Amino acid sequence: MKKILITGANSYIGTSFEKYMAQWPEKYQVDTVDMIDGTWREKDFSGYDTVFHVAGIAHSDTGHVSEERKEFYYKINRDLTFETAKKAKADGVKQFIFMSSAIVYGDSAPIGKSKVITKATMPSPANFYGDSKLQAENAILPLQGEGFNVVVLRPPMIYGKGCKGNYTVLSKFATKLPIFPYVKNERSMLYVENLCEFVRLMVENEEHGVFCPQNGEYTNTAELVKMIAEVHKKKVLAVKGFAWALKILSKVTGLVDKAFGSMSYDMRISEYKENYRVCGLMESIERVER
């Protein structure tokens, strides 16, 4: 039996993973430890095969944040990650899996531009959130070796039932709007159960390295809204001609490029020796919306 410790209680990814792994009670034992106070430092990590570190702060508005708040991002996303990884290695844990993000490659391309991340693309964070994640990666990757495997995951936008963020906003639009602006864009996404299966395979195969999992299909924002609406037996008309207005709006808020900009992984860097995509795009939307 593989024993896995999730460091970070009540996180969306952590709770989703724990629920997903309950399918195999005879193969995996999954425990969780809260990282909010310092009591986790007293916990003995020995006996666990893997520490899955999901504790961290996600960004909201990175344009209006105090220096104190920025430092807090580094304290949690970088320093806490490094401290946890060092403890895991010192306690004899065999593997440390860190939830990084595609944000280490910077922001989405603006409307009308493309951005495809390939094997040759170097990380280039656009803000302190992405930099805090990249600095965490750079701190823990040298710990690899001596029976200690380090896995860094750089997923694109994660979505699933009960998730927060851009997907939830688009879902609301899909159920309330009869029309939606069509902009030619391409985005990588990752359904949470596909992520969970990928993490399971990382544990099972005792992997190490940097990985960029994604769904097997790219998405277009307007087409995604139409698919969500379809699940709810509604029809949304994707209308062209709004790109100019959205470009102007993007000067005011970064949310526009997050929704309508392009950012995708070359599919080749997301392939793995075993299939981790437990369901396709349409099926995943059905699971989320029903």
Rank of each mutant, 00 (worst) to 15 (best):
R154F: 05
V30D: 00
N215L: 08
M99L: 14
K233A: 12
H64F: 15
W24H: 12
S171T: 06
A90H: 11
L195E: 02
L190A: 05
S100L: 06
F96M: 04
Q29V: 13
I57Y: 09
K258R: 15
A9C: 08
Q144K: 15
T32H: 02
Y272N: 06
I13K: 01
Y73D: 04
T84Q: 12
V152K: 00
F148C: 03
W40S: 01
L134A: 05
S11R: 08
S114D: 15
Q95A: 01
Y20H: 10
P181C: 00
L134H: 10
A109E: 03
V169W: 11
E207G: 02
I117Q: 00
K226M: 03
L5G: 03
W24I: 10
A136F: 03
G106C: 02
F148T: 01
A139Q: 12
I97L: 00
Q95F: 05
F98Y: 11
M157P: 08
G38Y: 09
A85I: 03
N215P: 04
V30P: 01
K89R: 09
L141Q: 14
Q214G: 07
F96Y: 09
R69A: 15
V151Q: 01
M1G: 13
E83L: 07
L246R: 02
I57L: 11
K184Q: 13
G56F: 01
I36L: 13
M267T: 13
G261V: 09
D34K: 06
M267L: 15
M282W: 11
Y276D: 11
M267Y: 13
M202Q: 03
I158V: 12
P25S: 01
A238E: 09
D91I: 04
I117E: 03
G165C: 02
K226N: 04
K164E: 14
D49Y: 06
I158T: 03
N215W: 04
K119F: 10
Y20Q: 07
F128T: 02
K113L: 08
T253C: 02
K234T: 03
F180I: 00
W244Y: 14
F260A: 00
I228S: 00
K240F: 12
I97F: 01
I117T: 06
G63H: 11
E193C: 09
I140A: 02
T81P: 05
A243N: 13
R268F: 08
N185P: 04
A126Y: 03
E18Q: 15
L80Y: 11
G160E: 04
R268Y: 06
Y159T: 08
D37Y: 13
Y167I: 10
E137I: 08
E289N: 02
I228Y: 01
V33E: 07
V239S: 04
R287E: 10
K113P: 10
H232S: 14
K19G: 10
E223N: 12
V51A: 00
V192Q: 00
D266Y: 03
A139L: 03
I103E: 15
